[in-house]
Design a binder for these strands. Sequence first.
DNA 1: GCGACAG
DNA 2: ATCTTGTCGC
Length: 340
Amino acid sequence: MASPDLREVADSFVAGIPNLRDQVDQLVRSIAPGSVATYGDLAKSLGDIAASRWVATYLLDPTCRVADFSHRVVRSTGEIGLHYSGSSETKTELLRAEGVVIAKETVHLETYRAQLPPIGRSLSELKAWQLDFESPAEPAFRLEDIEAIGGIDVSYGKVQAVAACSRMQVDGKTTIGTQTYVGAAEFPYITGYLAFREIPLHLNLLADMQVAGTLPDVLLVDGNGRLHPRRMGIATMLGGLAGIPTIGVAKKLICGVLRVPELRVGKWEPIVVSKDQPDEILGYAIVPHTKTKHPIYVSRGFGVDDQAMLEIVERCLNGHRSPEPIYWADRESRRHASTL
DNA sequence: GCGACAG
DNA sequence: ATCTTGTCGC
């Protein structure tokens, strides 16, 4: 299997990501004076209610390009909510001036709710992309053939972000080296869509490593793999795009439930879709050491079976909560980002 | 009122 | 993820 030019993979991936800010701007401008929409209405027009918190955050930012129209966006309860000016009274007065009746700081949504236009090429399309994503054939993974285990993470500075990949020997604990890549993270963080925020940085870093001949044989990714609402977390998508075996390692549970009531330090326990489906295992949780009560959540990314996955992660556990490659990538990317 | 979700 | 002080513990 010819390995792909990762710079080209990065460029074409980026080309397929919509600009959510532009789309929210367009939607907000479409709300006529005298009517309102909710943050959730806008998110649904983008294609996923999960974006509602980001929409609210964006519209409350004073530098937002549609700040002058953002008073027309209220909470799902009809409550006026916050305003970029810092004053809900200002927001209320702006709405009243446009003829909207407000009682008890609340709008009657049934009366004033605007009809929003549909948006093409947005979150709905990204969701479909995740559901339809076709991973290339997974080459047989042979644990005895690997020479380097990588860990990849992203930290954020004022303007730009830094991706770092640290490589360790097969013992999982001996450092070989770290490479970094600085770039912009354009796409916002929305639960379930982390891949579209961080993979552009990941792929460009991996492209640099491809040139340098330093690509690891397996990559631990800060985030989930199969343990994802659509079974397509960042680790799975990155591995499929780059053709590199990956494992997802997260610090918080995004979905699913623990199959057992309690975790024991150092013991893997399955995470399943629900108590009713105890056989569909999405990933595994483990409390890595005595110092912490917090588990990590590990799931298959691409090209590695569950048994090899757990063996690799175990080798990398060395007194920190995260496996060493991720621990170091996090440390280095954060240190670099703090200087930006 | 509560659940409630990677980075 | 980031914003943030001192503080508790190994």
